[in-house]
Amino acid sequence: MDVYTITVLANIALFSFLAISAWLLLLVGEISFGQQAYFAIGAYTGGVSTAVLQLPFGIALLMAIAAGGLFAGLVAIPAMRLSGLHFSIASLAFAELVRSVLNVFQYQRWVDGYLTGPDGVNGFRDIRWIYDAGIDPGTYFLMILGCLSVVMLGVVMASYGRGMTIVRSVGENRRLAAAQGMNATRVRIITASVAGAIAALGGTLYAHMATYIEPAQFGLMIGVHSLAYGLIGGMGTVFGPLLGVLIDIGALETLRIFSGYRMIFFGGLVALVLIMRPRGILDEATVAKVQRWLRG
């Protein structure tokens, strides 16, 4: 595979983390415009860990996951008192707050003759762990794919257990979920925390691939897109948000025929899908049909 194809595929995989993160919150009944905040937290935490603190990449991933999960959990505790539009606005406000903080956040150190670390609005250069470690783009893509597979396996395992049933129950009808003994608030906070951790994992992988990040990259539009991926792809399965990413980045952004018109097509597609299939292409009913067919 040439480097261009690998980059496109890596971008699809990276944005899938963000899409799965927003999709999880949709399942629990909340629309978040702010998952890019945890993507940014993951990117900066991972970047600082390897580039400034010179920690191993594995530790950087764990620190990013922990930071994303922790921040998302802490934000969720007060935010989950809200619901609907109020929650959406709160999530957006937090994302903008994170971006504003990153605009003034400076933590630079001399490492091997380079001044590296977050430099406010000027961004964060030289996150060059993959180059220092001699990892080629193809191998790094496989590493991203490996992490994505672990996340998806986690969701599939949660479906095999009772985890996803609980999340979907709370998302659909909190009152009825409570009657089954489910603590809706706890479920929503844990889901938000897991979603934050997943976004942060994607963020740190993104930072190491891009080698340069800046606060402007984590704006509202990334949040809107990550939300739209789940809505287009479908709510019935974890493959739904992936399908959404594939349609947007894999087709609309990559194919030259949409050049310059991508956002128009994307916006139109979201509107069309929401009208014709309100729960997305791979909605719950479609997934149930496929499961029935697979089981004969």
Partner: peptide, 17 residues
């Protein structure tokens, strides 16, 4: 009141919680 987006089986799993 049923969980309309869950299958009949999953509704029962929710009940088992």
């Amino acid at each position: 009141q049923v969980f309309s987006r869950l299958s009949v089986y999953e509704n029962m799993r929710a009940g088992c919680h």
